[in-house]
Amino acid sequence: MSAPIPYTQFDPTSYLLLTPEDSDAPARVARLRELGIGDTPVPEFDDFARELARITGAPYAMVNFIDENRQYFAGLYTPGEGQSGVELDPQQAQPGRVMSRDHGYCPHVIVRRKALVLEDVCDYPRFAGNPVVDEIGIRSYLGAPLIDHTGMAIGTICVVDQEPRPWGRQGLETIKSMAAQLVEGINQRDLGLRR
């Protein structure tokens, strides 16, 4: 007769809300330092985020770099009252540029190394409990990883909305194409730094 299996308490929802483990974070931080990005706003990334918002029709767009503990939006576009977008001071980080690593969906994208389309985050138990749903009112997300020429996933680009959005296949193709475009610029920047 076999020994009884020890009882362990199981919470079926506990795994749903966890931010994925990111074993590449230390190497990513070192890579971002080499590139000189990830700690301050970059005007070109703000311009890119503005264009990404325009192309997708989303009210918010980000170029995001993630370390062990936080996310930093080196490129950010947000709507302003009566404006097409908020102009941010590129010389210093403004409130809203930093978010905890356990908030949002970009940490999932960077670990998965694949684009993520959430037309309504509330349709996905794994993502519906994320703090950004209740704290910011995020209802839809579209993001893709930035994988540079070294093969490192160095960051993400994303758009979000406070309403469900039917991103569809066109949205997926757009975000992947835009990520490839930004990666090309980052690779060029890297080659320029090495010269």
Score class of each variant (00 low, 15 high):
residue 191 L to Y: 09
residue 113 R to V: 06
residue 145 P to G: 07
residue 2 S to C: 05
residue 91 Q to M: 14
residue 93 A to Y: 04
residue 186 I to E: 01
residue 80 G to P: 01
residue 39 D to L: 12
residue 132 V to Q: 02
residue 55 I to V: 15
residue 106 C to K: 01
residue 58 A to N: 06
residue 140 S to M: 09
residue 85 G to L: 04
residue 189 R to T: 00
residue 125 P to M: 15
residue 11 D to C: 10
residue 58 A to D: 06
residue 135 E to A: 15
residue 21 E to N: 09
residue 189 R to D: 00
residue 152 M to R: 04
residue 39 D to R: 14
residue 119 E to D: 07
residue 40 T to M: 10
residue 86 V to A: 08
residue 47 D to H: 14
residue 98 V to F: 11
residue 149 H to F: 10
residue 187 N to T: 00
residue 156 T to A: 15
residue 47 D to Q: 14
residue 57 G to W: 12
residue 152 M to P: 00
residue 179 A to R: 01
residue 57 G to V: 12
residue 127 F to S: 04
residue 70 R to P: 02
residue 112 R to I: 03
residue 110 I to T: 05
residue 104 G to F: 06
residue 126 R to S: 13
residue 155 G to F: 11
residue 143 G to E: 09
residue 113 R to P: 07
residue 34 E to L: 10
residue 167 W to G: 01
residue 112 R to C: 05
residue 188 Q to R: 15
residue 84 S to D: 15
residue 76 L to W: 05
residue 21 E to L: 12
residue 166 P to H: 12
residue 29 V to D: 12
residue 67 D to P: 01
residue 191 L to V: 07
residue 116 L to P: 11
residue 84 S to E: 15
residue 97 R to W: 08
residue 46 D to R: 08
residue 180 A to H: 10
residue 49 A to V: 09
residue 176 K to A: 11
residue 168 G to I: 02
residue 164 P to H: 03
residue 183 V to K: 00
residue 152 M to N: 02
residue 162 Q to I: 11
residue 57 G to D: 14
residue 171 G to Q: 08
residue 157 I to Q: 08
residue 114 K to N: 08
residue 17 L to V: 14
residue 138 I to V: 15
residue 26 P to I: 07
residue 90 P to Q: 01
residue 193 L to D: 01
residue 187 N to M: 00
residue 191 L to S: 12
residue 150 T to A: 07
residue 100 S to H: 13
residue 182 L to E: 00
residue 178 M to L: 13
residue 68 E to C: 02
residue 81 E to Y: 12
residue 103 H to Q: 11
residue 88 L to G: 03
residue 91 Q to R: 10
residue 182 L to T: 00
residue 182 L to A: 00
residue 177 S to F: 05
residue 8 T to E: 15
residue 162 Q to C: 06
residue 163 E to R: 15
residue 184 E to L: 12
residue 33 R to I: 06
residue 77 Y to I: 04
residue 28 R to K: 05
residue 185 G to L: 02
residue 143 G to L: 07
residue 106 C to T: 02
residue 186 I to D: 00
residue 73 F to L: 13
residue 161 D to E: 13
residue 177 S to N: 09
residue 182 L to V: 00
residue 127 F to N: 04
residue 3 A to M: 13
residue 160 V to A: 13
residue 160 V to P: 08
residue 10 F to T: 10
residue 162 Q to Y: 08
residue 108 H to Q: 07
residue 95 P to G: 10
residue 98 V to R: 11
residue 127 F to H: 13
residue 16 L to G: 10
residue 140 S to F: 07
residue 51 E to S: 12
residue 111 V to S: 05
residue 124 Y to R: 10
residue 60 Y to W: 06
residue 145 P to A: 09
residue 1 M to V: 14
residue 192 G to P: 03
residue 29 V to N: 05
residue 114 K to H: 12
residue 80 G to T: 08
residue 112 R to S: 14
residue 159 V to L: 06
residue 187 N to C: 01
residue 26 P to D: 04
residue 48 F to G: 01
residue 75 G to C: 03
residue 84 S to I: 07
residue 19 T to C: 14
residue 132 V to F: 05
residue 147 I to P: 02
residue 42 V to T: 14
residue 70 R to D: 01
residue 76 L to A: 07
residue 88 L to K: 04
